[in-house]
Design a protein around this nucleic acid. Structure first.
Length: 103
DNA sequence: CGCTTGACTCGCC
DNA sequence: GGGCGAGCCAAGC
């Protein structure tokens, strides 16, 4: 995972998301930091929406730092719920309790 | 070639 | 504790 500005970045993001354990979620900033790009959190979401949606990566386990799910993606809630992720609201997960600590 | 937008984050009020 | 604004990077028009 080197500091690249192209496909390497995408590969690293997808790789990180793919290794998130079931019943656990990670925030965009968390992943961005793991790939040495703390300011590219927005890119993580963009990548997931493009490559993640096309590939077989558990992009549904990735939420915002606030624990909010993807706006417009209603299927994300039941998917996370089925994996054992506690929910605060219909659009917010208890990220404080299920945050991925794979650091 | 430059402005707009986006599955974000953090600081300030 | 919740709402608002600024910052950052990349892709699309």
């Amino acid at each position: 995972m080197t500091a690249r500005l192209n496909a390497e970045f995408v590969t690293d993001v997808l790789n990180m998301v793919d290794l998130i354990p079931t019943g656990r979620v990670a925030s965009y900033g968390q992943i961005a930091k793991l790939i040495y790009r703390p300011h590219n959190a927005r890119l993580v979401g963009k990548v997931l929406g493009k490559y993640g949606g096309k590939g077989h990566h558990p992009c549904h386990r990735v939420v915002t730092a606030n624990g909010r799910l993807v706006p417009g993606w209603i299927d994300q809630r039941p998917m996370l719920e089925a994996e054992g992720v506690p929910f605060k609201d219909e659009n917010h997960v208890d990220i404080n309790h299920c945050r991925w600590q794979g650091l």
